[in-house]
Design a protein around this nucleic acid. Structure first.
Lengths: 248, 248
DNA sequence: GAGTTCACGATTGTAAACAATTTTTGTCAA
DNA sequence: TTGACAAAAATTGTTTACAATCGTGAACTC
C-alpha cells in the first residue's frame, strides 16, 4: 500500500541536494526529512491530500517518532502540510481562493524583484541562473517529468536567491512551493508549469539590463501559468488512492 | 531571577489578543505560547539574546515540556528564536547584514503594496487602519512605551492584512517582527521606531487614491526608520543580564 | 438491503523516565 | 588572585510507555 509514503518516492532523488537549499538552518538533521518531503511536493510526486502517517515516515527515514513529528510541524508552518488534530498530517490542498492569493502575491513581489536584478545585476548569481536554464533544457530534452517540474519552479526560487537576500529568497521559496501544489491540482493540459523558453527570455532581459522588458516578460509569464489553470478542476474529490494511482 | 522569562512580562498584556493575529491556524493551543512570546518580542520586552529555558516557559504557561518545545520550534522557523543545539533557545539577535536584508526586503515589497491599496482601496480594511491610528495616538498621548512600539509595527502588518491576501500578510508580519528586533538592537535615540504622523499621512494618501504619493511617503518613512539606526551599536556585547536590567 | 451501534485495531497526543550534553560550582595548585 | 581541573547540578535531547481519539468492520435492528 501507498508506496509513495513508504519510502519509494521519497528516498530516491537525493542527487539534487547540492545547490537548491534556501532557508533551513543547519540546526539538526530533521531538516533532511523536511527537505525530502519538500522536494517530493515540489516535483508533484506527493499529491495534495496524501496522508503522511507518522509510522510510515519513521520507517521511511529510519528515525524516531519525535523527529518525524517535528518535521511535520515545520512543514505545516510552511503551509506544505496540513495538520489535523488527532487525525494526522496531509499534504496541503490549496483551494481556489488560496491559489488566487498565491498568484497575487507573486504578482506583487516578482516584478520589482526582476526589475532590481536587471538594474544591478550580480555577475556570480546570474551565472548560476544560466547554468540552471541549461539544466532545464536537458531535462526537457530527455522528457523527465518530475525534473522539469522541479526545475521550472526552482528557476523562480533561484531568481530570488540571486538577490543575495535571505528573506526575499525564503518568501519566494514558499510561494513557489505552493504554486507547485496549485499547478498539480488545477493544471489542465499537459503544459507542465512553464512554457519552454520564457525563462530564457527573462534572464536575457535581466542580463541586458532592461528592467522594463524583464518585468513585462515576467508578468506575462506568470499570467501564462495562471491562465493554464482550470480553477473548476478536481478540487475536493481527489482522494488518496486516486492521487497515488494517477501519479505513477 | 530573570523575571521576564518567569512569567511576569509574558503573562500580562493579554488584553490585545483580539485583532492582531495574522497567520496562525487554529490547530492547537501551543499557538498561544507562540503568540505570547511573539508579542513580547514585538513590544521589545524580550531583548535579543535572552535565554528562553524550557523549564521556565513550562512554569510560566503551565504546560508540558512538549508543548514548549514545539512552540520554540515554530518560533525558530519564524526567525524569532535561535535554537542552539544542546544549549537552548535564545531570542534572535539579527546582525548588521540581516538588518540590511530586512530593510531591503521591505523596500521591495511595501511600495507595490501601498500602490495597490491606493489603486483599489478596500473600504472595510481601511476603516480598520483608521481605528488603528487612533489607537496609536492615544498610546502616544499616554506615553505607553511598549504599546507604542507594538502599534507602530502593527500598522505595517495591518497594511498588508488589508489586502486580504494571507501570504502577503504573513510575509509582512515576519519582516515587521524582525524590524522590531532590529530597532531594539540598533535604535539609537529615543525615537521609538516610527515618527509621529507619517503613518497618518500614508493612510491619507491611500484613502485619497494617490498611489504615487503613498509610495513616496512610505519609502521615506522606511528610510527614516533605517536612518534612525546606529549600525555600529551594541551588536554582540549585550548579554542576558544587561538586557533584562536595561529593559525595566 | 440500508442504516445504526458497538467493539476492536490503528494512529495520534501526552507524560514520564532515561541518556547525553552543557553549565556551574568547588577545589587545588601556581 | 588567577587559572585549570573535576565533580555536581541543571538543561536539553531521546526513547519508552501510556492515554485518548479516530477509522473500520462486524453484528444487529428496522
Amino acid at each position: 500500500m501507498n508506496s509513495i509514503v513508504e519510502g519509494h518516492n521519497l528516498s530516491i532523488k537525493t542527487q539534487s541536494n547540492d545547490q537548491n537549499e534556501t532557508s533551513f538552518s543547519p540546526e539538526s538533521d530533521e531538516n533532511l526529512i523536511v527537505e525530502r518531503i519538500y522536494n517530493a511536493v515540489m516535483e508533484q510526486r506527493l499529491a495534495p491530500r496524501t496522508k503522511l502517517s507518522e509510522a510510515g515516515l519513521c520507517k521511511t527515514f529510519g528515525v524516531g517518532r519525535m523527529r518525524v513529528r517535528r518535521a511535520l510541524l515545520l512543514l505545516s508552518s510552511q503551509g506544505i502540510v496540513d495538520l489535523r488534530s488527532n487525525r494526522g498530517a496531509y499534504v496541503a490542498c490549496p483551494n481556489k481562493a488560496e491559489a488566487n492569493d498565491v498568484f497575487a502575491a507573486r504578482m506583487l513581489i516578482e516584478p520589482p524583484l526582476v526589475r532590481q536584478l536587471a538594474q544591478n545585476p550580480n555577475g556570480n548569481s546570474l551565472d548560476l541562473l544560466t547554468e540552471h536554464i541549461a539544466l532545464e533544457d536537458t531535462a526537457r530534452a530527455q522528457n523527465e517529468r518530475t525534473e522539469i517540474i522541479r526545475l521550472s519552479g526552482e528557476f523562480h526560487t533561484k531568481l530570488a536567491q540571486s538577490t543575495g537576500n535571505k528573506f526575499i529568497a525564503r518568501m519566494m521559496r514558499e510561494l513557489v512551493t505552493r504554486t507547485s501544489l496549485i499547478v498539480g491540482l488545477f493544471g489542465s493540459s499537459k503544459n507542465a508549469s512553464c512554457p519552454d523558453d520564457e525563462h530564457t527570455n527573462i534572464l536575457d532581459a535581466i542580463q541586458s539590463q532592461n528592467p522594463d522588458l524583464a518585468e513585462r516578460l515576467l508578468v506575462s509569464h506568470l499570467e501564462h501559468i495562471q491562465n493554464g489553470l482550470d480553477m473548476e478542476a478536481l478540487q475536493e474529490p481527489q482522494n488518496d488512492l486516486a492521487a497515488i494511482l494517477g501519479s505513477n
